[in-house]
Amino acid sequence: MNNAVTPSGIRLELRKLFLKSEPVRGYTLLSPTLLAMILGLAMPLVVLFTLSFWLQEYLDFIRTFSLANYVEFFQKPIYVKLLLKSIRISGMVTIATVLLAYPMAYFIAFRVKSNKLIWLILITVPFWTSYLLRVFAWKIMLGYNGVINSGLKSLGFLTEPLAFLLYNPTSVVITLAHAWAAFAILPIYVSLEKIDRSLLEAGRDLGENAWMTFLRVTLPLSLPGVIAASLLVFIPTVGDYVTPSLVGGPRGIMIGNIIQSMFGQSQNWPMGAAISVMLMFTVAAMIGLFLWGTHSYRKRVA
């Protein structure tokens, strides 16, 4: 075609292409988001990965490939120990949060007949306070002159305050379980709410008692919500350094604190990058394992 090379011809052809091709239109709409994500997510992760193979020399980087950071990671026991401890603490937080949240979500989904929204708002209200202040609140609760100690003292149960309440892994678990409560309730509630009520009646109708109906119908059907809740709690808490440094004390520190110090006082960015990469891979592996486990559980039940 002759007119295809004239400017108006090219415009016409482009216009045809735009009208004809849904991928072109779709990716045009996606382009701002994709651009931001490539600049702010893909590139930084590539750079993080690269940096983990470099070394720090005072304020500069030695930009030659080296496995030294990874060697150090596995040789010094502290890193692996902290990583495992973080996973343990975070895992306990996840289990505690989900176990505590499930009955509450169940209550709102099945027992509350009207005003469900009010209950949902009631649950989220405490989370309108700053995350940092929420964590700090547990210092007030568990501290030496805190609520629990003062309360027990004034009731005559104690003469001296208990010092062991704060600054240990348990206080980190309690604080995190409290801070992420709403994130666990909402997805579980949504998945419970979606369950077709006639399925539960069918379960009862087929001769199962309430508890067996729950185990064989309700629980498997709400599993997507439980999975979402678990991931939503596990992923952010495993890398957290705020809570451990406020309520954890020296015994309660987690892998996030080490990473943060590598970018702060210790000034060893490549080492920090290597620890981050290890954390990322471990988390990915944990999630994969977890999803695989729940998947095979669901298969067994079905």
Binding site: T33, A42, V47, I235, G239, I287
Partner: peptide, 29 residues
């Protein structure tokens, strides 16, 4: 209808599934 829709959506959702500290330091670097 777009080819590669699922991986693209997965890519955009990555910030939800990596710890924030990693997002923070990688941007810092």
């Amino acid at each position: 209808r777009m080819p590669g829709r699922a991986p693209v959506v997965g890519f955009i959702m990555i910030p939800l599934v990596i710890p924030e500290i990693i997002l923070g330091i990688s941007l810092l670097i």
